[in-house]
Design a protein around this nucleic acid. Structure first.
Length: 190
DNA sequence: CCCTGATTCGC
DNA sequence: GCGAATCAGG
């Protein structure tokens, strides 16, 4: 595929609309998002500003750009960092269906009680749990929802296992109940 | 992990 | 001019 006027036209239009390069590439077909981005740059509309009157306040100093033309195309030595690798997923466990065990008598910080979760979130969770993949511990991967379901003390226990939301340890629905925005908490009138 | 755009450089 | 490979951020 080549960049015909028509295709460039579509490119311009979509880019102008703020579409992502990958979407544009998909629409055009026969090109990758890299191609799209490359073309965008060559067309000089890398900045989504149409005016173009703006002089980029970019500093000339581009030390990094010149720093690595072709270091070593090889596998590159991944720095082996003695990273303790504290799994973020671990500390965020929701502890469902279990009385919380509070160590000592400090006033507890505000905790999202399971009963204050928005109905929508709850609903979608139930939805999700119906279609959950019911993974066991071994089957969990970096990108499976690690939300526990059921009682760990019985067979009736598994993990959600749906695709996680980028970054988070849970799928979208469970992220919703795990990380409450802290806004939905209404002070009950007194 | 997924995604995004940015940049370089052999073709 | 083109775009894969790579980089850098989210």
């Amino acid at each position: 595929m080549s960049w015909t006027d028509e295709r460039v036209e579509i490119l311009k239009k979509m880019w102008g609309e703020g579409q992502s390069a990958s979407v544009i590439a998909k629409e055009l077909g026969g090109v990758t998002r890299n191609a799209v981005i490359g073309k965008v740059h060559r067309l000089g509309l890398s900045n989504r500003s149409g005016g173009g009157s703006k002089a980029p306040a970019k500093d000339k100093a581009a030390p990094k750009a010149a720093a690595k033309p072709k270091p070593a195309p090889k596998k590159a030595t991944p720095k082996k960092e003695p990273e303790p690798a504290a799994k973020p997923a671990a500390e965020a466990k929701p502890i469902p269906a279990r009385k919380q065990i509070i160590p000592a008598g400090q006033p507890l910080p505000p905790q999202p009680s399971a009963n204050e979760i928005s109905p929508e979130a709850l609903a979608s969770v139930r939805e999700v749990e119906k279609g959950a993949k019911k993974l066991n511990l071994m089957e969990l991967t970096e990108r499976t929802c690690k939300w526990p379901i059921g009682d760990p003390a019985t067979d009736d226990f598994w993990f959600c296992g749906l695709p996680v939301q980028q970054g988070k340890p849970y799928c979208e629905a469970h992220v919703g109940v795990a990380f409450q925005p802290m806004s939905s908490r209404r002070d009950r009138k007194r």
